[in-house]
Design a protein around this nucleic acid. Structure first.
Length: 333
DNA sequence: GCTCCACGGGAAGGATAGGCTT
DNA sequence: AAGCCTATCCTTCCCGTGGAGC
C-alpha cells in the first residue's frame, strides 16, 4: 500500500506545488534582492493552520537557494525554540559558529555580536509560529542585522504585532505582507491526489474518498494529510486492496484525536482541572469557572494565573472564548 | 457618569536547570 | 561532589482599559 512514507509526512516539501502560484510569486519577489546581494524586506506570512504557509515558504526559499550561492537558510520553529537564546543559538548553529557557547552562561549581546562578525554572506531566517515566541526582543535583534532577512510565519498578524514593542512594530508596519486563505475542498483533493500518487500504490484511493477527507479537514491541509496517512497505515495493516470509505471515516476521528491529545499532554495538572471543568460544563462564565476551580484543587492558583492558563489553552485551540465582557463564556473548541 | 466584570500587560520574586568553578 | 551563577519559567501583585448595565 505505502510506497514512499516520506511523502505523507507533515514536513515533506513537494517538488512542485499545486495552486498557490501567486503566493509563491509574492515570496520570490520579496526575496529577489538577495539574488543581487542586497538584503530583502521582512516578510510577514499569515493565515490559518494548514493553509500551506510553512510548506510554500520553504518551497520558495529552497528555489531561491538554487539560484544564489552563499545564502544561508535557517528554518526555526518557535514552538520548540521559543526563547531569545534558543533562536540565536539555532542560527549560529546553522552557521557552524557555536563553538564555546555555553548553554546559558553566554550573554545575548555576545551571541548577537558573533552574528554580526560572521556577516560574510546573507542569511534568510524563517521564524515559523512566530506568535509562540516568548520574548519578542529577538525580532528586534534580527531586524537590526543588515545581512539577515526575516520571514515571520504566524496565524494572525494582529496577535504577533500586539506582542512586539513600539520601536519594532513601527518598523514592521512597512514590511511585506502575505496572507494565506484556507484551501477549498477542490484544492485539498488536488493536494491529496498528488501525495497519493507519489506515496501510495496506484489505485490505492478513489476520488470519492479523497473528497470525504477534504470535507472533514475544513481547509486544513495538514489535517487532510494526517487523515490520509492514518488511512494508509490502516489499509496497510489490514492488507486491504485500497483505502475504502470505511477506513477513511475511521481515520478522521483518529487524526483529530492525535492532534488534540498532543495538546492535552502539554497541560499541567492545574491547567487540566480547568480544562475538565469547561468540558464538564459545556459552557461557563469566568467567575463560575474560577470558583469551581478553587474548590476542586487543594492549593488553587490566583485568578490571574488561571487567566494565563485560559489564554494559553485558547492559543492551543483547546478551548474557545466568546464575548468580551459580561457575556464572556468559555467552551471547548 | 458610575460600578461591576473581565482582560491582559508589566514588574517582582521564588524555583529550577544546566553548566562552570573549586 | 558541592556550591555558584545565570537565564528562564511560573506565579503573584498591581493596575489601566473597556464593555454592559444602572
Amino acid at each position: 500500500m505505502i510506497e514512499d512514507a516520506r511523502v505523507l509526512r507533515d514536513d515533506f516539501i513537494p517538488a512542485e506545488v499545486v495552486h498557490r502560484d501567486p503566493e509563491i510569486q509574492h515570496i520570490s519577489r520579496v526575496l529577489s534582492p538577495l539574488t543581487e546581494g542586497q538584503p530583502a524586506e521582512t516578510l510577514i506570512v499569515t493565515g490559518p493552520s494548514g493553509a500551506g504557509k510553512t510548506c510554500l515558504t520553504q518551497f520558495a526559499v529552497d528555489r531561491l537557494k538554487q539560484e544564489v550561492l552563499d545564502l544561508h537558510i535557517h528554518y526555526i520553529n518557535c514552538w520548540q525554540n521559543y526563547s531569545r537564546f534558543r533562536v540565536l543559538y539555532r542560527i549560529l548553529e546553522g552557521l557552524g559558529k557555536t563553538v564555546d557557547i555555553h548553554r546559558q552562561s553566554t550573554p545575548h549581546d555576545e551571541l548577537i555580536e558573533r552574528l554580526q562578525t560572521y556577516s560574510d554572506s546573507h542569511s534568510v531566517v524563517i521564524l515559523d509560529e512566530a506568535d509562540q515566541l516568548q520574548d519578542t526582543a529577538i525580532l528586534y535583534d534580527l531586524h537590526q542585522l543588515p545581512h539577515i532577512s526575516m520571514i515571520l510565519i504566524a496565524n494572525r498578524e494582529a496577535e504577533l504585532l500586539a506582542r512586539v514593542d513600539e520601536r519594532l512594530s513601527s518598523r514592521l508596519v512597512g514590511s511585506e505582507r502575505l496572507e494565506f486563505s484556507r484551501y477549498s475542498d477542490d484544492e485539498l483533493v488536488a493536494i491529496l491526489r498528488k501525495r497519493a500518487e507519489a506515496g501510495l500504490v496506484s489505485g490505492a484511493i478513489r476520488t470519492q474518498e479523497l473528497e470525504t477527507i477534504a470535507e472533514a479537514s475544513a481547509g486544513d491541509a495538514r489535517a487532510a494529510i494526517s487523515i490520509l496517512r492514518n488511512a494508509a497505515r490502516t489499509a496497510q495493516f489490514e492488507q486491504a486492496e485500497r483505502i475504502t470509505s470505511s477506513i477513511v471515516s475511521d481515520s478522521i476521528p483518529d487524526a483529530r484525536q492525535e492532534i488534540h491529545q498532543k495538546n492535552l499532554d502539554r497541560l499541567t495538572p492545574d491547567q487540566r482541572v480547568v480544562y475538565e471543568i469547561i468540558e464538564e460544563a459545556g459552557e461557563i462564565t469566568p467567575s463560575q469557572l474560577y470558583q469551581q476551580y478553587s474548590t476542586e484543587v487543594d492549593d488553587p492558583k490566583t485568578d490571574r494565573t488561571v487567566r494565563n492558563y485560559l489564554s494559553k489553552m485558547t492559543r492551543y485551540n483547546l478551548i474557545a472564548a466568546e464575548g468580551t465582557s459580561h457575556d464572556r463564556r468559555y467552551k471547548l473548541a
